[in-house]
Simulated scan of single mutants.
Amino acid sequence: MSFTLATWNINSVRLREPIVQQLMQEEAPDVLCLQECKSPVDKIPTEGFAALGYTHMVARGQKGYNGVAIFSKIPMVEAGSEDFADLGHARHIAGTLENGVTIHNFYVPAGGDVPDREKNEKFGQKLDYLADMRDFFRREALTKSIMVGDLNIAPREDDVWDHKKLLKVVSHTPIEVEKLAETQDAGNWVDITRQDIPEGNLYSWWSYRARDWDAADKGRRLDHIWATSDISNAGHSSRVLRAARGWEKPSDHAPVFASFDL
């Protein structure tokens, strides 16, 4: 079975329902994973999505913040969720497709503004969350799995607009990059996006603060698609839909795509 998957931090699924539907109509991924839905599950606008063929959903929600959901045209059953770092946040959901592939959808904490856990509780929570993810992957020894989401870390020098300037900025600090690498190694995960696009600057997020985000192009690659090593060779056709960052009332993130032949 071949399918295309997209991951997108939507920054409120209800507020941005029109552009979610636009993506579903124009790009039509078989599976769409959303983060930062900012909605209880029962308030997610599923009716319009189902009318476009997305009749299967697994989700975890909260009022006003966090929240993750997977919408699928392919039959899918829930495969659980974890509360990493015991934060009580809706940041993880998993669903298994009818071909046996399990998709894990994550929204890793952003970590605040100061990269020091002694001065900034949120940064400590982010590091603890990553450590719990690492331990979970080691314990579960996942196979035939895909992991997507807003991981809130741009690991490579060419994943940010200026490596040196961002070394002390949360999302690109050495300790975050190190912890993300540990998490990746623990699950034998392969970064599908960079497997397909090994060289060159690549971003999926541009701040709302920029007067002209497109011209300034001060981006970061915070959104990721990984696959376990047993199926990584099946991944292909990775891309970032940069144009979506310029849609009406946009998220500050752009959707990231990959296709799999499994």
Rank of each mutant, 00 (worst) to 15 (best):
D196M: 13
M57T: 05
M133A: 14
K249H: 08
N105V: 06
N152R: 02
R220F: 09
P115M: 04
D252V: 12
Y129E: 03
F136P: 07
N9T: 04
K122I: 12
V77Q: 13
T4C: 06
Y129H: 12
I93T: 07
E157H: 08
F49S: 04
D214P: 03
S204M: 04
K168N: 12
I19N: 03
G246M: 11
G124L: 11
E140A: 12
K165H: 13
G88P: 08
A6E: 01
A216G: 05
P109M: 10
A244N: 10
A90H: 02
K63Y: 08
D128N: 15
S39F: 00
V240W: 00
G80E: 14
S259W: 00
P45S: 12
A258R: 00
F84A: 02
G187W: 09
R211Y: 10
R239M: 04
Y208H: 07
K144G: 08
Y129N: 04
A59W: 03
L34F: 08
A244G: 03
E140I: 05
S251K: 02
T7C: 03
L87K: 14
Q125E: 15
Q62W: 06
D113I: 09
G187I: 15
A210M: 10
V160W: 01
R242H: 11
W247R: 07
G112S: 06
E36C: 04
F137Q: 11
V31N: 01
A69S: 06
M133L: 15
R209Y: 04
N11A: 06
P45C: 13
E182N: 07
E157R: 11
Q184V: 11
I93N: 02
P29Q: 06
I93S: 00
I197Q: 01
G187N: 13
R138F: 12
V170K: 01
W8N: 01
T173D: 06
G53S: 11
H89K: 13
G67Q: 00
D252M: 08
E27V: 08
L167C: 12
A254K: 00
N201W: 10
V177R: 14
D150G: 06
D261R: 07
L97P: 00
A90D: 01
A85Q: 10
A141V: 09
E17P: 08
M147I: 05
A85V: 10
V160T: 07
A50V: 06
D86K: 14
F123P: 02
E121N: 12
Q22D: 07
D191E: 07
E82F: 06
A258Q: 02
I19Q: 05
F260A: 03
W161I: 09
L142K: 09
A254H: 00
W226K: 05
F260I: 04
L87H: 13
P109V: 10
Q125S: 10
D223S: 07
E36L: 00
I10V: 14
K38W: 08
D185M: 15
E78N: 10
C37W: 00
